[in-house]
Amino acid sequence: MTSPVTHFEVYGEAPAQLARFYASLFGWQIEKAPGVDYWRIQTEPANGKSFGGGLTYRAADGPSSWLPYVTVSALDDTLSEAQRIGAHIVRPKTAVPRTGWYAVLTDPEGNCFAIWQADRTAFPSPEPD
């Protein structure tokens, strides 16, 4: 079974402006999620075949290009295998609450990509504040 590319993210210092840029250029429907700095992208809103994308602030370790997400069936296994064959971890396994886990890597040539596994029980461990 192959692992499909299912999502992508775009980053910037001024995501609201960037959202307008892509909406203008490609006609994408881009809407900000309430209460969080995340803009949901629908690439083909008219025909319902939308490719899921997101737009947000660039993280300190974030790439200066789009980031493709590859959905995998077992994130821990994929992470181990990726490292074994030459990948480097940029961001370790991280939870999206009640949604899934992701990690960001670079391939042996330095290209950045993320892997994703859906999991309704995903949740991060709290940190002292």
Partner: peptide
Amino acid sequence: RDPATGHGSVDFDQFNYFIGR
């Protein structure tokens, strides 16, 4: 709590949003 990360929020805008609600 930042619903996107599950962690305590450190986002000023999120505090304003939540207090508004």
